[in-house]
Design a protein around this nucleic acid. Sequence first.
DNA 1: GTGAAAGCGCTAACAA
DNA 2: TTGTTAGCGCTTTCAC
Lengths: 371, 371
Amino acid sequence: MHYGMPNPRPSGDSAFAKAPTIKEVAAAAGVSVATVSRALNASGPVHGTTSANVLAVARRLGFRPNLMGRNLRTTRTCTLGVMLPTLNHPVFAECLQGIEAQAQSQQQVIAVSATGYQVDAEERASERLLQQRVDGLILTVADAAHSSVLDKLDAEGVPYVLVFNQPGVTSPSLAARPFVSVDNFLAGKKMVEHLLSLDHQRVHMLAGQFQQSDRSLQRFLGYQAAMSAAGLPWSPPLELPFTTCDTRRELQDLLDRRSPPTALFCSNDQLAMTVIRDLRDLGLRVPDDISLAGFDGVHMGELLSPVLTTVVQPTAEIGRAAVDLLLQLIDGECYLGPALLHHTLRLGGTASRRTQEHQAAFASPPGPRTP
Amino acid sequence: MHYGMPNPRPSGDSAFAKAPTIKEVAAAAGVSVATVSRALNASGPVHGTTSANVLAVARRLGFRPNLMGRNLRTTRTCTLGVMLPTLNHPVFAECLQGIEAQAQSQQQVIAVSATGYQVDAEERASERLLQQRVDGLILTVADAAHSSVLDKLDAEGVPYVLVFNQPGVTSPSLAARPFVSVDNFLAGKKMVEHLLSLDHQRVHMLAGQFQQSDRSLQRFLGYQAAMSAAGLPWSPPLELPFTTCDTRRELQDLLDRRSPPTALFCSNDQLAMTVIRDLRDLGLRVPDDISLAGFDGVHMGELLSPVLTTVVQPTAEIGRAAVDLLLQLIDGECYLGPALLHHTLRLGGTASRRTQEHQAAFASPPGPRTP
DNA sequence: GTGAAAGCGCTAACAA
DNA sequence: TTGTTAGCGCTTTCAC
């Protein structure tokens, strides 16, 4: 179908002639609007020559269907609402890229909103998107098990798919909420097992605040499980606000303990990269003095030297899968359970085997430089 | 105004009662739809008690205005189209964040599309957004001086604002196209002047392909100007495809020349970070063996060690300013010229004073390791 | 195969 | 201050 691609200069009128409507196409083609509609959408029987003529006229006039009219009539907008905490973060940005690509390929438009993990922002944004009558929503919330926005969507029967959230595990009793993510518990466990396989025994976890991230909690539970399975004691996580950009004080406290960790597991790559820099400021080298692993698999981690050891999520794929699942839900297909996509471990250079030298570093820890 | 925030469970009906319309609110409140509309939008005279009653009823029913109806009637959607090459790239992601924030604060919704610098994707996306009847467009194109999409928007009188593009300079004859960016020429010039002030004389530029980036060209012209002003010879840029993720071969070629550069100016930070890694692979340290500067000011650059020397653009601010400018254009205010926002130099550690040692590195350049 | 007409939900004249 | 009414542009019965 080629209608809707107007000529550079519509029809010989001066200035900006207002966009022609289906009515004008009908008049110009000498048929009724119904026939034009059928021809343009191939939505009903229409004679070959009539159709060709209509299409030609529409093209000549630079006709561009007004979706407001169509949407009002069909009560479908072919628009998907997307609500993410931030668009700036590499993980969400890449996911959004995946969402957009898949949406585009399915002729959907996306309306995007950033919520900053603020419940009131989620409330406002969802309300606006629902007023726009989006067909469904793709979103990440702080805690998918306790979300007023999700409660509202459930109550109103609005189709939605969560990305990254992993609600089911914390509250299996709740009606299942559709989500697409990796198995954060398992991935966290695998990563810690990897650290343990490198002879580390004192592994600590640094995490975003669990209140703001149910998946962060899952990763911690994975850490806990791996430690317990190995017969090692686990420590409570160091929870850091989402906005943290300087971890030196917390790290210093951690390293000043009687048995400081030999390896750190950070619940996301952003945090991991910040920690690497701050460790460097404190005079510690990664991995020589301390090993470190992240979670996410952001591209930037591969530009570091050494390359960041991390769990790689198929971030863009999560976005694409969410679109597919959402479109199914919109089409009334019933929900068959969440999509857990495959993760992989990237065995970079920031986590290495514990050595004597390594131990020595802690026998006489260097004093802080600029605490 | 508080209407439109429905109670968790609309009105006692079973399952998912379809959303109430203004008509039903009118009936329930015992007034006409006109009065409801006026009360809800404060768009006309309405008695205090009547208004209060209407609002209460709307609230109780969980009324949520259907914007398709309103938009169709008003021919305004309060939606801004956003077309960027990619949503994944830190610069565009941060800009999008700024756009979204400002749009939200101005009660606008954004419809987002990624175009990957592909003209046909730009064509498709713009067409879809125009069918959606967005009120205007914010976009980045490859070359703003030669863009069929911009030609179309101009011809149809659709308001738009370019971000990052800097079209005027290359073709002052064309009707001015509204844009928001930094002064790429000046910023490039300043950065090269900084490198020259560190005693560098052989400075080379690495750039994204100019065909894909008019601003990259501006930065190169700034480089040229700085070199010329200092009485130094400039070299043609090393143009690399946008997708480049390995620059080792090109770098090796560059370093094998008779007088290899002592400093590199990369036209963006992504490229700069890739180059730093590849130089490292080739056995060269930054800045000890060679100095380097980037352009953009992405956050990640501050996590590097040493910190990336670069031009910092106010990326999010560019997005916000673009929204403000676009809304003015939509409101019919006339275009008063582009917004050139302030940039700053971040004097990180990747560009340092040229030393004897530095020179020595090139007296006997190390062979390639994995070319 | 085609047309006439109703109506999606809303706003804005115009009347009262 | 309030109500009546005519569309905004489109799809979709239902006749023919």
